[in-house]
Every structure is written in C-alpha cells, then in structure tokens.
Amino acid sequence: MNEKLKTIVVDDEPLARKGLAVRLSAFDIIDVCALCSNGREAISEITKQQPDLVFLDIQMPEINGFQVVQALEEMHDNMPLIIFVTAFDQYAIKAFEIHALDYLLKPVDHERLGSAIDKVVKTLEHAKDGEHKHKLVQLVSEVTGNDCEQILAELASNTPVSVSQYSDVLAIKDVGETTLVPTKDILCIDAAGDYMCVHTHSGTHILRKTMKDLEEILDPKVFIRIHRSSIVNKTYIDKFGNHVSGEYYLILTNDKEMKVSRSYKDKVKQAVLG
C-alpha cells in the first residue's frame, strides 16, 4: 500500500493515548489524525474524519468501546477497521478474538503493534474489510444486548460472557451529533408520523425508526407495547386502570397518562400485575 492509513486513537488514559500515538509514529504507513479521550469524542471524530483505522480502548467511562462501535453501526456510517486496546488479560479477551480484526493488550508491545498493523494492511489489500465489519457488528449486537458494565466485569473476572440480542442503549443521531440514551432511562416511546419520540426524565429525543425496529432491539421483559403507537418501560408504570368510558390507561411515575388499546390490555395487565 502506498497511501497512509488515516488513524484515530481512543483512550481515556492520557499517558496510554499519547504513548500509543508516539509508537504509531514509527510506522510510515500510519497517519494519526486525532486523539480522543472518551467515547463521545470518538464518535464525533470518527464521523467527521472517516478514518481507515481506529485503535479503540474497550473500558472507558460513560460510553465504552463496544458502545462506540454500536453507535457507528446504527448511524450507518462507513465503519473503519477496529483494533481493540484493552487491559484485560489474554484469557479473558479470547471471547472477542474471532470478531475483532485484532486486539492489543496494555501496555502495548512494539512488536505486537507491528503485527497488528501488518494485519490491517493485509486485510485492506485483500478487501476483507467487509468480513471484518460483519464480525464486528455481530460482536456488538451480542455484547450490547446486556449491560455493558456487566460484560466488562465478566471479562475482568474471566467468567463466561453472557449475551443477549437486546440493546442497552439507543444511538440517536441529530444534525451530525449522536446521543447514546441508556434504555434503562427511557420512560416511554410514542410515534409521531415517521419519527419516534423517546421520552426520558431529562427530556425527549427524536428517533427515525419504526415500532417494529424498536421491538426488535428493546428487551420485551422491560418494554411492553400498549398501543400501536406506544411502548412503555414497565419499570416506570405507577398505575393501571380504566375510565368510566371503558378506556384503559397507564400512569407513569412522572404522572404522564397513556392510553392502552383494547387489543393490548390483557398483555399489559399481565405484564404489570404478573
């Protein structure tokens, strides 16, 4: 390859971040275009810079490495090649070995770094980045189905990683910015034309997805459909009843009243009353 690889380094530890950047400067093929100190910054820079390669720390506060990848995938942006950087030991990280292009253990060894970069070059030369992206998306769909902090704790303690198909965050894109909304903070979701209004205690977010899309990614043990245009987090249901008119309703913990359609009332009653 003659062209340099546009590269971003993401790590919340300043010394680790700068140290890896210095090591990468020894490779002529690498052009480090940005250093990011957290997940939000990483999502913004990756979206803006469209790099070829990202060295991504897994364990970061607020938004970890897995959630960064999930956000990029949900935004349908071009996915760069990802090399995970982690302090987890080799035994623990084997759970992800088949998915990521490669991974580096901290502290990063120079020879091992060179090997990872060689793998990147060979992947690009043989046009296998599509396969890499597929594996990466598969990984993220498995990992982010559970609480990511739980996943990280399981990795750190060398216990088997539990997986689920359901997401614990919603990535909501708005005017070039992406907000990761933890699903546990969602009170309810209702339809507004072609958009979904995602209501949380801190405010409302607008998301372009269908009810069917949301039902596929939200855990049905937590989120229940109460109407053709409404989904509720049953954690925040305070009351369930019916008016004199015969209409059924829910009242959430924030005093918001929501209509329950007759076709869903039995399902809702069972979910609420057990």
Rank of each mutant, 00 (worst) to 15 (best):
L113T: 03
G114Q: 07
G114Y: 05
S115V: 12
S115R: 14
I117W: 06
I117F: 01
I117M: 04
K119G: 00
K119I: 10
V120Y: 01
V120H: 02
V121R: 08
K122A: 04
K122W: 03
K122Q: 07
T123M: 04
T123Y: 01
T123A: 00
E125K: 15
H126T: 10
A127E: 15
A127L: 15
K128R: 15
D129S: 06
D129W: 02
G130C: 11
E131R: 08
E131M: 09
H132P: 07
K133H: 11
K133Y: 09
K133Q: 10
H134N: 14
H134P: 06
H134K: 14
K135E: 02
L136C: 02
L136K: 05
V137Y: 08
V137W: 08
V137N: 05
Q138S: 08
Q138M: 12
Q138V: 05
Q138C: 06
Q138E: 09
V140P: 00
S141P: 11
E142M: 14
E142D: 15
V143D: 00
T144W: 04
G145D: 13
G145Y: 13
N146G: 08
N146T: 09
N146I: 04
D147F: 04
D147W: 03
C148D: 02
C148T: 10
E149K: 09
E149D: 10
I151V: 10
I151T: 05
I151Q: 05
L152T: 05
L152S: 05
L152V: 12
E154Y: 04
L155F: 07
S157N: 15
N158W: 13
T159K: 02
T159C: 01
T159Y: 00
P160N: 13
V161G: 04
V161D: 06
S162T: 15
S162F: 13
S162W: 14
V163F: 05
V163P: 01
S164I: 07
Q165L: 14
S167W: 02
D168I: 00
D168V: 04
V169L: 01
V169A: 00
L170P: 01
L170M: 05
A171H: 06
K173F: 06
K173P: 06
D174G: 10
D174L: 10
D174T: 11
G176R: 09
E177P: 09
L180M: 12
V181N: 00
P182R: 08
